[in-house]
């Protein structure tokens, strides 16, 4: 009713429409910018609390009137954290298990996806279904039997024991398979006619073309291995084999509630390397994940 009277008072309906559209656009822009501000606050404030916590003295942290900013910037908590637990060792363990695990995953992801798309094999689809089944079995469900297997092989508390059960890859294989399938088959035919074997076709033609998908799958592997928690928690038994996430949760059990500054500093040890990788490579990760979801 009111909309109609408004239209009548305005010179032409078209101008009315464009005016209401403009108002709508301004409103939605305003909401958009408030969403950006809200996002920055909701993610930023906890991160701010983490960083300032690592810089505060105990007296500042345990004051009944907590301040937002430390009175002076000091790095004692970082040195205390580094000395309080073998963080150098945790870093080495995390780097080794992450690189080994991600290398296994990405290698097998590429070769399996290549085989599923380009190599003839009877009942090839059954292999695909087998991988689908693997995707349905979460790590947690098979964790007790896997611990027993690793114990039988005398690999508890070793790098091989940490890496092996998670070395195979299903999700990344699908991601790559999907990408490989979208490539023009003429490419491969041409290479095969030229006499290139599968290994050469894969390494010098398919992998370079599929570099964005390989980067996405690789990053997903690296991040997952670096952050892995349950399995390394169970399969490591001494401090010198713990990875960073396990190391900081041990530090928390020892010092939590008494040394928040030290614990926050240690948390930064774990978080900063991944954030640096993400800053550098986020366009691969974000767009790759999005593409995977939208294509299905």
């Amino acid at each position: 009713m009111s909309a109609r009277t408004q239209t009548e008072t305005l010179p032409t309906p078209r101008r009315a429409a464009s005016r209401s559209m403009r108002a709508e656009e301004t409103l939605s822009k305003a909401l958009g910018y408030s969403a950006i501000v809200f996002t920055v606050l909701i993610i930023g404030i906890p991160v701010f609390w983490l960083i300032t916590g690592a810089l505060k003295t105990n007296r500042e942290i345990f004051s009944p009137n907590p301040q937002w900013l430390p009175s002076q910037v000091m790095f004692d908590n970082f040195t205390k954290a580094w000395e309080g637990a073998p963080f150098g060792r945790y870093y080495i363990n995390s780097f080794i298990t992450t690189i080994l695990g991600a290398a296994c995953e990405i290698t097998m992801g590429i070769t399996t996806a290549y085989a599923l798309v380009f190599v003839r094999f009877p009942k090839r689809d059954w292999v695909f279904v087998l991988l689908l089944v693997a995707l349905m079995v979460p790590e947690e469900v098979v964790i007790v039997p896997n611990y027993l297997t690793i114990a039988n092989w005398h690999l508890v508390n070793t790098y091989a024991g940490i890496v092996l059960p998670g070395a195979s890859i299903a999700f990344g294989t699908f991601l790559l398979r999907q990408y490989f399938r979208s490539l023009p088959p003429e490419l491969i035919d041409a290479a095969r006619v030229d006499g290139a074997g599968h290994m050469r076709t894969m390494l010098s033609i398919i992998v370079p073309i599929a570099a964005p998908a390989v980067a996405t799958a690789g990053l997903l592997s690296v991040v997952a291995k670096w952050n892995d928690y349950l399995w390394p928690l169970i399969v490591t038994s001494t401090a010198d084999m713990r990875t960073l996430p396990i190391g900081i949760s041990w530090l928390l059990d020892q010092e939590g509630n008494t040394e928040w500054g030290v614990v926050m500093a240690a948390t930064l040890f774990v978080v900063v390397p991944v954030v640096l990788v993400f800053l550098y490579a986020q366009r691969f990760l974000v767009s790759g994940i999005a593409a995977g979801a939208v294509k299905g």
């Binding site: 070769t111 085989a115 094999f121 693997a134 079995v137 098979v142 039997p145 998670g166 299903a170 294989t173």
Partner: peptide, 28 residues
């Protein structure tokens, strides 16, 4: 020959799943 290539390429992945996913599921 193609089948051998397939086994070499996809075999390790499937074998690891057999050891650390399918068998443990039954063991569980």
């Amino acid at each position: 020959r193609e089948w051998l290539v397939f086994l070499a390429f996809a075999g390790p992945n499937v074998a690891l799943f057999a050891i650390f996913t399918y068998t443990p599921l039954i063991n569980n």
